[in-house]
Design a protein around this nucleic acid. Structure first.
Length: 712
RNA sequence: GCCCGGGUGGCGGAAUUGGUAGACGCAGCGGACUUAAAAUCCGCUUCGAGCAAUCGAGUGCCGGUUCGAGUCCGGCCCCGGGCACCA
């Protein structure tokens, strides 16, 4: 922390260090422990079994990233999926609000909003049940395509599904298959890319409309934690079901025909569009939308199903079997079950006198930590030894900046002054998880009465990755660059300018300090230009009515540049082109050889403009140059420069002449010339003439102030 | 596999609403200054042809729309981010 703070200070960032928060200190994390107990009271947190990657050799839970080709990154042991009880936060209770809230975030990039919408994945469909032969309980599935229901030719359940477990008891082959499924990686990406495998369970389900029996399979691509852990399969109209059916010789039945009567061969591939129902008995001839309603009505009137909304979003698992984190404030009592720690006993402090054995969390070996009494009945009880996912810490720190010193409350009145955050900046890799968790936490805090704000971040700028040697630069990869060396060689301002100039912030950037020389040279030229100007003595008052053409040109450039940079910084977040525009203006000043009184006045205005527009990026040098230019005020108190609109109009404009869309010449013409004058002069251009020749001019297109295109 | 981005000179990048492709900078080449070097200043610098004027080609690939496409549409290829325990 000291090193990082030092680097930020050396770069001269104007942070208010009195508001610094440190998330691993009890003064901070006690409040998320407190909020967790409030969420417990409201039923917003719960405990359930869920899958982790278990390394049987190191006897520890591995992160997805630590599983390489199905093996532990250190032990090389085959990793197993293991179910353990873990705590979850009910983010799904806010699914609709989190989805709709995206419509009111004009200051967020569309790409991030789209990603969050897709992640939440709201879909409307029907939850319906299939009777299972020999079972009392029906099998419930969710489908967004009830119109394809008569095309169901098999069903599939997850390896952990009770029906699969039951079948495994009678069939060693099924048991072996389930055992194999347990060996697979828990990440969705692996699940989606691995070979789709399955095995029949020897159990039949009964089709709720046709009454036909359909076989029940266990399949490795069905997830227990997603939906009901069971799916109906319609190979005729779903790609994955089609491939699975082809592989295992299961029947494929067409029940939807294209609406436009084109013919399809269901044997060549699934037809996944909406259309008209066929082979569906009384539903034949209905279009998909009508059939959706008719079939949904059938289930609702018979009580065997209902319309339902499904989300792809799953609840947030916050338990980590790690030492370094915020202890989850729960006590397990034999009589009272899981009980939240009482408010007056918070924080539950993470002990630091621990020993690392290499097996599991040291908290599990520390009786003075886990031995406690039940907050409810007082009997001897055991403390939770799991800690929170560190995403919990990062889900509300921004709000805590408003009141980092309050030891009586999570947030106080000052929060309403500062929140929401006007401008939030972070890496694009946080587009979904961190930003969604923060939006969720803000709402939880709102519903706890801590804030009136629902959306934490008004404007969002997502930075591209900074890459080093082809990989994302991160603490994790250990390939970060220390700015120290560059600061020592070139100074903080050069380093700042170079970083702003390298690329627009939203773009990924391969780090290289090759071009830093250019920024250094520019700042030296800038300094010399001001020196040279000041050496000429004080400049007289600018008299805009007394300027010659050259002076007007420089003055126009000055005010065009102020306009462009204001827009680049204020609206477009294009700091690189802002720097380029300032460089252009300085180049114009250096070419401007005019030591007349008004020449010096115009030059001074240009130099002051460069000082002002670069001041956010190069504050130290600009402050010094501001004073060099004769001001005794601090630059930081100076207002942003304004564009003088009267300096902008030009007498002559350059117009491009195209013949059949190809550039053939350029003409200079009065800015207020009418369309016919522009056309006449374009037609008279000698080079354009060569390409027109004797051809008939069929059309001329004039784009005012830009170009003429002569079509022959 | 699915969702979201991106692909432009030797390099970083610019072209904001369909209207001059390559701004600005790096590197390189040539020149000035210097005994020399560094620094600085001036010029050239997409590729091909040409002494030049200028011409042809060109924004990942194939096709389309348009007077005009880096920009819009369809289809592909490649690279990056995310996929719920990297954070």
């Amino acid at each position: 922390i000291d090193d990082m703070r030092d680097q930020l200070r050396r770069l001269g960032y104007a942070y208010d260090w009195t508001r610094e928060v440190t998330t691993c200190r009890p003064e901070y994390y006690r409040w998320e422990q407190w909020l967790f107990t409030k969420m417990f009271e409201k039923g917003l947190v719960y405990r359930k079994n869920s899958v982790v990657n278990w390394d049987p050799v190191d006897q520890t839970v591995l992160a997805n990233e630590q599983v390489i080709d199905g093996r532990g990154w250190r032990s090389d042991a085959l990793v197993e999926r293991r179910e353990i009880p873990q705590w979850f936060m009910k983010i799904t209770a806010y699914a609709d609000e989190l989805l709709e809230g995206l419509d009111d975030l004009p200051g967020w990039p569309d790409s991030v909003k789209t990603m969050q919408r897709n992640w939440i994945g709201r879909s409307e469909g029907v939850k319906l049940s299939f009777e299972v032969e020999g079972e009392d309980e029906p099998l419930v599935v969710f489908t967004t395509r009830p119109d394809t229901l008569l095309g169901v030719t098999y069903m599939a359940v997850a390896a952990e599904h009770p029906l699969a477990t039951k079948a495994a008891g009678n069939d060693p082959a099924v048991a072996a298959f389930i055992e194999e499924c347990r060996k697979s990686h828990a990440a969705e990406a692996s699940l989606e890319t691995m070979e789709k495998k399955g095995m029949p369970l020897g159990i039949d389900a009964v089709h709720p409309i046709s009454g036909e029996t359909v076989p029940l399979w266990v399949a490795n691509f069905v997830l227990m934690s997603y939906g009901t852990g069971a799916v109906m399969a319609v190979p005729g109209h779903d790609d994955r079901d089609w491939e699975f059916a082809k592989k295992h010789g299961l029947p494929i039945r067409q029940v939807i025909a294209p609406a436009d009567d084109t013919s399809i061969d269901i044997d060549e591939g699934a037809f996944t569009d909406y259309g008209v129902l066929v082979n569906s008995g009384e539903y034949d001839g209905m279009d998909s939308a009508t059939a959706f309603d008719a079939i949904a009505d059938f289930f609702e009137t018979t009580g065997r199903g209902r319309r339902a909304v499904n989300y792809r979003l799953r609840d947030w698992g916050v338990s980590r079997q790690r030492y370094w984190g915020t202890p989850i404030p729960i006590v397990y009592c034999d009589d009272c079950d899981a009980v939240p720690v009482a408010e007056e006993d918070l924080p539950v402090v993470l002990p630091e006198n621990v020993e690392f054995t290499g097996h599991g969390s040291p908290l599990r070996d520390l009786p003075e930590f886990y031995e406690t009494t039940c907050p409810r009945c007082g009997k001897a009880a055991r403390r939770e030894t799991d800690t929170f996912d560190t995403f919990v810490e990062s889900s509300w720190y921004f709000a805590r900046y408003a009141c980092p010193d309050n030891d009586q409350a999570m947030l106080d009145d000052r929060e309403s002054y500062w929140m929401p955050v006007d401008q939030y900046t972070g890496g694009i890799e946080h587009a979904i998880l961190h930003l969604l968790y923060s939006r969720f936490f803000q709402r939880v805090m709102r519903d706890e009465g801590l804030t009136a704000t629902s959306e934490p971040f008004t404007n969002l700028l997502t930075q591209g990755m900074v890459l080093k040697d082809g990989a994302k630069m991160s603490k994790n990869k250990g390939n970060t660059v220390d700015p120290q060396e560059l600061i020592e060689r070139f100074g903080a301002d050069t380093v700042r300018l170079f970083m702003m100039f390298a690329a627009p912030p939203e773009q990924a950037l391969e780090w290289s300090d090759e071009g830093v020389q250019g920024s250094s040279r520019f700042l030296k030229r800038f300094w010399s230009a001001v020196d040279k100007h000041v050496a000429g003595g004080p400049a007289p008052e600018l008299d805009v009515s007394a300027l010659d053409t050259g002076q007007k040109d420089l003055r126009r450039k000055t005010h065009e540049t102020i306009g462009k940079i204001s827009d680049d910084i204020g609206r477009r977040n294009m700091f690189n082109t802002a720097v380029a525009a300032a460089m252009e203006l300085l180049n114009a000043v250096n070419r401007f050889e005019d030591s007349s009184a008004q020449g010096r006045a115009v030059e001074r205005e240009a130099l002051e403009a460069v000082v002002l527009v670069l001041s956010p990026m190069v504050p130290h040098i600009c402050h010094a140059l501001w004073q060099k230019l004769g001001h005794d005020t601090a630059l930081i108190d100076q207002p942003w420069p304004a564009v003088d609109e009267s300096a902008l109009p030009r007498d002559l404009v350059e117009i491009v002449v195209q013949v059949n869309g190809k550039l053939r010449g350029k003409i200079s013409i009065a800015a207020d010339a009418d369309k016919q004058t522009v056309i006449d002069q374009a037609l008279a251009d000698p080079n354009a003439q060569r390409f027109i020749g004797d051809s008939e001019v069929r059309k001329t297109i004039v784009v005012p102030g830009r170009l003429v295109n002569i079509v022959v």
